[in-house]
């Protein structure tokens, strides 16, 4: 009954096919918080108590979800965004992540793709430069 509500009104992201344990999301956020840069080290150096870290990570997790799936977007802006960018899966950015894909992981995927793009461009120029030298 709950499922029919959730998926029926499309308030939540589409039903997953490949499930990931729930704790993974929270643990991922907690790990990200610990890994944040802080001076010469990371937030992990602060030795935040686990319960406190969990609570603030929960807050980040909720904020992130709400920023993605509980938002009001002007129709024109949404259309422009959808037309202008492409996700790693080749779908428009305005569509939801594929079932079972974490939104947090999606961000990493996009960053990885960008890095790959930059490397490709650099490699192209390096190849051109070498070709010029060889001539």
């Amino acid at each position: 009954m709950l499922t029919s509500f959730v998926t029926g009104c499309l308030l939540l992201v589409p039903t997953a096919q490949a499930q990931v344990p729930e704790t993974t999301q929270l643990e991922e956020v907690m790990a990200n918080v610990r890994a944040q840069s802080l001076g010469s080290g990371t937030v992990d150096d602060l030795a935040l108590p686990e319960d406190f870290l969990r609570r603030l990570s929960d807050r980040i997790l909720r904020r992130s979800f709400e920023d993605h799936f509980r938002i009001v977007v002007d129709a024109q802006v949404a259309e422009t965004a959808a037309a202008g960018s492409v996700s790693p899966g080749g779908t428009a950015a305005g569509t939801e992540p594929a079932a079972g894909t974490s939104i947090f992981r999606s961000v990493l995927d996009v960053l990885a793709l960008l890095a790959l793009g930059v490397l490709t461009v650099l490699a192209y120029f390096a190849w051109k430069a070498r070709a010029r030298r060889d001539r």
């Binding site: 939540l12 999301q25 799936f69």
Partner: peptide, 11 residues
């Protein structure tokens, strides 16, 4: 059991 995706369930 709920048929929810991980992000929604975590939220």
């Amino acid at each position: 059991e709920l048929g929810l995706d991980p992000d929604s369930f975590a939220y």
